[in-house]
Amino acid sequence: MSTILECKNLSKAYGGKTALSHVSLSLNGGHIIGLLGPNGSGKTTLIKLINGLLTPSEGSLLVGGHPVGVESKRITSYLPDQSYLNANLKIKEIISYFDDFYNDFDKARAYDMLEKLSIHPEAKLKTMSKGTKEKVQLILVMSRRAKLYILDEPIAGVDPAARDYILNTILSNYEEDATILISTHLISDIENILDEVIFIKDGQIVLNSSVDKIREENGKSVDSLFREVFKC
């Protein structure tokens, strides 16, 4: 199985504060991985490093064998934790924008998902509820045929029923050999669709294991283990 993401001794400090400290990590193709940690543990910092929005203070990072840059971004589909879309645009305008911008964007797939969720392509983004906006953004991200999907808190703002739909959208739309890295603290909602989990605490990886292995070894869910490891 090919390695899609390789971090070696990766660190990031903001001024004097260390956000990520000597993280080494290797992710294989075809897996869904949960990046789990409490607020301020370094999840988003790691994600921003992978996407080239931050530069590492130390260490190296390869995505699909490429250093972070045009080649790595070509194969990475990223859902940020905050929206960057122009809210005055209609959904169909945003779709044609994505279609122009990304070679691997599948327009038909995007329209298909919009229809299933009864989201009207003529509607403007700003007229939509928070949950619907999140769905639109996820649709855009999952409509690319990428090698690495990075979803930063994809289900935080939506109700439980929509959460199920979104998880199902993720499951039924990712390319079989692609890797999905999902950052969240809503673990119990997402646990069943993960292969592996990474626990991150104070900028360091404290656990990297498979969901079934955690359950077998601890006799408890990843959610319960998380509550134990990160007990306040």
Binding site: H31, N168, L171, N192, V211
Partner: peptide, 17 residues
Amino acid sequence: VRDLASEAAVNPNTMQK
């Protein structure tokens, strides 16, 4: 595998296993 995984709402690799 994919349809079963989707129906069960689990990871396809887990269903495969």
